[in-house]
Simulated assay, not measured.
Amino acid sequence: MLALVLAGCGSSDSTVSKTPDDRPPVTAPASAPVPAPTPTGPAPVTPVPDPCAVNLAAPEITRAVSELPKDPRSNQPWSPEPLAGNYNECAPLSVVIVKANTNADNANTRAVMFHLGKFIPTGVPDTYGFNDIDQAMSTGDTIALKFTGGVAGLDSVVRFRWNGNGVELIGNTG
């Protein structure tokens, strides 16, 4: 029975092809240009600087150095450009080492200390003469300042620690 139904519907029996269409052809209305597709992915992200990263260009360093008394040896102000440092806003104790703003061959240096990114103007042990930081001996609350080139070229390291209220000297090596 299925064969009869299929046989009865041939392509020549189509009513569509035999029935005249008196309607005018349908045309699509003119349309506005299709806008370009917008990206569907996430918008580009501008990286935000990490406040806890070392930042030797922080404005707080320049402010702190401008508050320091002049170098006692040359009577010159200090250069705000650090020779070394690990300044960051999150560390209990961080430091930058600056030199006197002079053209002398062996300009005096000093360490400038910060607690949570804020300059510690008083109560800090003497920090003149240091020219580097021993990163291996430094932690978030302890700074190991190094003097290189002393007697027989040996390094001398002095450690300072933030004790919760201020900076204290905790040990010498070398």
Rank of each mutant, 00 (worst) to 15 (best):
A7N: 11
W162F: 04
A43E: 09
N106E: 12
S79V: 03
V158T: 06
A7K: 14
V124P: 02
P42S: 06
D21F: 13
S94E: 04
R159L: 08
I120K: 05
S74P: 05
V45P: 02
A7H: 12
P47M: 04
A104Y: 13
D13F: 13
N75Y: 15
V151L: 15
M113V: 05
G129R: 02
T40G: 07
T127F: 05
M1R: 09
A107L: 07
P47A: 04
V151C: 09
F147D: 10
P20E: 09
T62L: 08
L116V: 12
A136K: 14
T46H: 07
N106R: 11
S31C: 05
P77F: 00
P80H: 01
N86E: 06
L56V: 06
G117I: 10
D71S: 03
N101Q: 15
A107Y: 07
R23M: 11
K118V: 09
T46P: 02
D105N: 13
G8N: 13
G164I: 02
T148G: 13
S11I: 06
S14H: 07
N88I: 07
F119Q: 02
E81H: 10
S17D: 13
G41F: 03
S14R: 08
V54W: 11
K18L: 10
S12A: 13
E168W: 03
S94K: 02
P37R: 13
D50H: 06
T19Y: 09
T139S: 15
I61V: 07
P77V: 00
L6R: 13
V5Q: 12
Q76W: 10
E81K: 14
P59R: 08
T122S: 13
D126Y: 10
T142F: 10
A53P: 06
W78H: 00
G123Y: 11
A107W: 06
D132S: 11
Q76G: 12
R63I: 12
P33R: 04
R110P: 00
D126I: 14
G10R: 02
P80T: 01
A136L: 10
S12E: 10
Q76K: 13
N108F: 09
S31N: 07
H115E: 04
G85D: 01
A32S: 09
A3C: 13
F119N: 04
V112P: 00
P92V: 11
V167S: 03
P92Y: 06
D22E: 15
A3H: 12
I133E: 01
D21Q: 14
T173P: 04
D21V: 15
V26L: 07
S94L: 08
A111W: 01
R110D: 00
P42H: 04
G123N: 10
S66R: 10
A152K: 12
R161H: 09
R161C: 04
V98C: 00
Y87R: 00
S31I: 07
A64F: 00
S79N: 08
P72L: 00
T38G: 13
I133M: 07
N101M: 15
D22G: 15
A144Y: 01
I170L: 04
G10N: 06
W162R: 03
L2M: 14
E89G: 14
G85S: 06
D141Y: 08
P35C: 08
P44S: 01
